[in-house]
């Protein structure tokens, strides 16, 4: 799988799925200053929606997210 495909897939994950599967990403969303943690509509929004809503830089967002995913594995 190419990196690009992988990124696309990650962007399609909903916020609530990500928070459930990787609880450490709570800090990630807080660090991005989004209101995703605790949001009642989190299971409707994909990461792509988050990037669009908050007008974030996609590349930076994914890079930062990767750090939190790695942290979780340790």
């Amino acid at each position: 799988m190419s990196i690009m495909n992988k990124d696309l897939e990650v962007l399609d994950v909903t916020v609530s799925d990500l928070l459930k599967s990787t609880p450490s990403t709570v800090s990630f969303f807080i660090s991005q200053h989004t209101s995703c943690v605790g949001c009642r509509l989190a299971h409707f929004c994909t990461l792509h929606d988050v990037i669009k809503t908050y007008e974030l830089d996609e590349e930076k967002f994914l890079k930062e997210l990767a750090k939190y995913m790695v942290q979780n594995k340790q």
Binding site: S35, C39, R40, L41, F44, C45, D49, T53, Y54
Partner: peptide, 14 residues
């Protein structure tokens, strides 16, 4: 725009 509704409901700034 789910976010805008949440913003109104919760009185968020952004």
């Amino acid at each position: 725009k789910p976010h805008d509704l949440v913003r109104i409901a919760e009185n968020l700034e952004k």
